[in-house]
Design a protein around this nucleic acid. Structure first.
Lengths: 351, 351
DNA sequence: ATGAATAATGTAAACGTTTACAACTTTGTG
DNA sequence: CACAAAGTTGTAAACGTTTACATTATTCAT
């Protein structure tokens, strides 16, 4: 389809026999117009199927009504649940979401950041790639950092209490009677990974358990990594029968390895506690405790802060909001899985 | 942060002691400029940290370099894998993605469509909510329909061969020796669901098996639906030990039910074949055969068609591209899961 | 030296809006 | 009836670019 010329406000004005100023006033309901004139204008608008040109308006008003969303990865359910919420909250307000992936690279993050700024986004929601975030310092539009905190950046931050929740689920494993617990972690430059490790250690120390270095394993936050780390752990005779797993992806990888390679006896006894409780959580058969982050609330808060800053009626210092996740007990699921243990959003429509 | 005034081309011109036309020429490498002048301009650009205003440029050029992406759901891995690809391909070309969710509602789809058109997107990638798509008829920008076809819309269409693949995996189940196979389906208004059902029936008929209506179950394409359909099927004494499952979501739901509620003997024998082979596929323990759609190729083709139409050098009639998915055999995974059976993108970084 | 051709730069209009201000019309008041 | 106030509409500038065209400066052949 060739790009047909759209009617402009001039066309409407001509057809209605008024000036463009009047048309604009009618459309924006600003100032007063004679009801009769309004009728004429509306008629012309309808006849021409006129839609105001958002670009021109943006230029004039210096406001694009678009929000940049910068994520490490697009195809990660944890992130996209957040994007979905953001979209749900912002689109009724007339905002469009410009979604950019930093592809887990700081360089790409920089590029995408300036790409978004060039496009004059009114605000930014950022899930940072790592703790290196100096490029965010000079951003001069309202911006909210979600899920991952970067130190020393004077910005609104919205996170979960990673440390406390990691502590809690580790304790839950201990309370189950597990005394040797391994750790399958992620990138030491990612805020969430670090905090969760701290929480894990908190629990181990508080309960005076030993922390066997052979089973404290760090790599990336990928499935691949979970797979190989689990393989490595299992290569030891005395592999623990419980692990704290830093997130979903590592969890899937580890579970995949176990399903395919571990002896029945090992599988029977294995217990995981981990972060994230997304739609495929019921499939994670070794998961006894999951940390469910309040994604809706977090997105809500992000939108609230962002819109208030954009409207300029929030001049306060940047705030840090820490949400308390809930812990989901999933053990003994055989024969007991009521809908109560199903993840949120279980009945959504899909492809 | 208050929105500080950005420097404009005028500021650059003044600082460099030239006219704005010259600055523009330098920036766009159009026409010829004296190397000396260019130096001055570049210097001024650097000193002011000038970035051209994309909105103004869009207005002048009547081209926004943004692509609208309209999906039924944002938080569905199948869709977001596609979005990720699109982003990866389009962002190097300078395009921004405006991601909109139609939230599985035709009305919302209409709203979001005109929202995107108002913003003068240069092109559209659409995964339609259902077969009712009259509102797409009058779209006057290049547009590609992905994954789901709508009849009678003169548009470029990119789909998988749903019918053939469904036929194939159903045959694979039959070849395994399964003679009674159930069907867990989705919405009859969704193209993919319908086509897959046809393929399933093709196989059943060709092999002269019987199609027991009690086990041909349709509902939504949700996990919830998979859960309840499986429950219903299992309530019969003579429930089949094999099912074709229309997609991932239904598959997860059904698996969840079985894991929690089915007798060991039932679980041991159960076999699924289904569409989609996404990152959590290894967790679907009853899955014997999965249809892996070539998402990268599909996204590639979409971008190719779209960009060529946008650049105007593709005036042909709309084309329909049908890709052949590959079939992944996943049975007997115990003890044999090499990385060969792991889904694509297994080693991606995540939260 | 002259004029034409070429190179380099500037001027100004245009893209489609919004809005301050001016201008005109109507109404109301004394 | 004059004049002010209120109501309604129009004019024109501005937002930050791009680009056709005009202008000026330079080079070169005659």
């Amino acid at each position: 389809m060739p790009k047909r010329e759209n009617p402009t406000i001039k066309d409407v004005a001509k057809l209605a026999g008024v000036s463009i100023a009047t048309v604009s006033r009618v459309l924006n309901k600003l100032g007063v117009v004679n009801p009769e004139t309004e009728q004429k204008v509306q008629g012309a608008v309808a006849k021409l199927n006129y839609q105001p040109n958002a670009v021109a308006r943006s230029l004039k008003l210096n406001r694009t009504r678009s929000i940049g969303v910068l994520l490490p990865e697009v195809s990660n359910t944890f992130f996209t649940e957040i994007v979905e919420q953001l979209e749900h909250l912002l689109s009724p307000k007339g905002y469009a979401l410009l979604v950019c992936s930093s592809e887990n690279s700081v360089d790409e993050e920089k590029r995408k950041l300036s790409f978004l700024l060039e496009r004059n986004v009114d605000g930014l929601v950022v899930i940072a790639v790592s703790d290196e975030g100096s490029h965010f310092a000079e951003v001069d539009v309202p911006m909210v950092m979600l899920d991952r905190k970067i130190e020393g950046l004077g910005r609104d931050v919205i996170i979960s209490d990673n440390r406390a929740s990691a502590y809690e689920v580790t304790c839950a494993l201990i309370d189950e009677g597990r005394s040797r617990i391994g750790f399958l972690g992620g990138d030491p430059h990612v805020h969430t990974s670090v905090e969760r490790y701290r929480g894990f250690v908190d629990a181990i120390e508080e309960r005076a358990l030993v922390l066997d270095e052979r089973f404290v394993l760090h790599e990336g936050m990928t499935m691949k990594s979970g797979y190989t780390l689990m393989e490595k752990a299992l290569s030891f005779e005395d592999c623990p029968d419980a692990f704290f797993v830093v997130n979903d992806m590592v969890h899937i990888g580890a579970t995949t390895f176990l399903m395919a390679n571990a002896a029945r006896e090992v599988r029977r006894r294995m217990a995981f506690a981990s972060f994230d409780y997304l739609h495929y959580a019921p499939l994670l058969q070794f998961c006894h405790y999951a940390v469910a982050q309040p994604l809706e609330k977090m997105a809500n808060r992000a939108v609230q802060l962002l819109t208030r800053r954009m409207e300029g009626d929030l001049k306060d210092f940047p705030s840090t909001t820490v949400f308390q996740p809930s812990i989901v007990a999933m053990k003994d699921r055989e024969g007991s899985a009521s809908n109560g243990t199903l993840p949120p959003r279980f009945n959504k429509e899909f492809s």
